[in-house]
Amino acid sequence: MKSILAFETSEEAVKYENITKELMAKLKSYQQILEQNFELATIPKGVLWTKGELATTTFSTIPIPAFTREDFIYMSPILKEWQNLLVSQLDGKVMPHIQSFYENFSNDQLFVILAHELTHHIDLFVDEFEDDRHDSIWFEEGMCFYLPRKYCLTEEQFEEITAIELELVNIFTEDYGENDLDDFGSMSYQGSLSSIMFDYWRSYLKVKLLVEKMNGDIPSVFKLYKEWHKEGRETSLVQYFEDILKKSEEVLL
């Protein structure tokens, strides 16, 4: 996979060359995990590294400087940009410990964002990049965070980010709790940053809960997801999983 530095000056490219090399080396190891366990068959041609401003205004209009298309992953490698962005998602709410976490956002957590983008390329997801994706985008987005966090973070880091996002969901439910998770999709990017991230937080937590309900059996979660698709998506994916889990609990009783 190519690593392409797309900055406006050669000085900027040199400044961020080391961190991009470090992230690409880690991505190679994670790529092998996806290939061996999660049907990653075709990788993107490369990662295009650029400033957040270019990522969100020139290469896309998405307000988050990390996204993937069929051929390339686009991402800002600038840690300070991510720290500022993640603090801004708090909408000025007073949460000192969460603000401190994002102000000290680490390279490990930055790598999870890059790994998230690569995870979109696994063949276990039923929707293609060119599809008008709907109904199940929350599952794909949630799994794209769950897998790299589970495989690439320490247990302490995993529990910390989970606790942070669970608290954020609880805090922002008053503002956005009426949003249907199954509606997570292209329309999600038209709201405020906190409303966008609210859907990401919920998606990750929902996937994490599903995996736990399935006793940590990630392939079984994907199997149910594919069965829902093959059966014609007759109900929402959220409802489908809830019905399946309810039946399994009744059997146990």
Rank of each mutant, 00 (worst) to 15 (best):
S10R: 02
E141P: 12
E212D: 13
K223Q: 15
Y189Q: 08
A66V: 06
V87T: 12
M95T: 07
A115Y: 10
L110R: 02
L40E: 03
S10L: 04
L48W: 01
K247F: 13
E12S: 04
S136Q: 09
S60L: 06
Q109E: 05
F111S: 03
E242Q: 13
L193E: 13
S88W: 04
F184D: 09
A66L: 09
E159I: 13
L153M: 07
N18H: 05
E156H: 01
I161P: 02
E227G: 00
I244S: 13
I113Y: 01
A13P: 00
H120Q: 04
Q89Y: 07
N179F: 10
P219G: 05
H120E: 07
L90D: 06
D180P: 00
D175V: 10
K230F: 14
V238T: 14
S10M: 05
K206I: 14
S186E: 14
Q239R: 08
I43Y: 07
E160Q: 15
T50K: 03
L166F: 04
C152W: 03
T20P: 00
K150W: 09
E212C: 02
P63S: 08
E103I: 04
E11Q: 10
I113F: 01
Q83T: 07
S76T: 04
T119H: 01
L181D: 03
G216Y: 05
I62A: 10
S106F: 04
V112R: 01
G232R: 02
P63T: 09
D243E: 15
S236L: 09
I161D: 08
S192E: 15
D183A: 13
L79D: 10
A25E: 15
K230Y: 13
I73T: 01
L166G: 03
E70S: 04
N37W: 06
F125S: 03
H229A: 15
V87P: 03
K51A: 15
L90V: 05
M75W: 02
F125Q: 03
E250G: 00
W228S: 06
R202D: 06
S236D: 11
P44D: 14
Y151G: 05
D71N: 13
E167Q: 14
N84L: 15
I78K: 11
S60W: 05
E103M: 13
L237K: 01
P219N: 08
S194E: 14
Q239Y: 11
E159C: 10
V251H: 11
K246E: 15
Y200V: 06
L34I: 10
K28H: 08
Y16R: 08
M197L: 14
S3D: 10
A55P: 00
E22Q: 12
L124R: 02
P65W: 06
M75T: 01
E156T: 05
Q99V: 08
E160D: 12
R69N: 09
P96D: 12
Q83G: 11
A163M: 13
M197P: 00
E53V: 11
S60F: 03
I161F: 06
F222T: 07
D132L: 04
M187S: 14
E39S: 10
K93W: 10
E12H: 02
V47P: 00
V47E: 02
P77T: 00
Y30W: 05
D217I: 06
E159V: 11
N84E: 15
E35P: 00
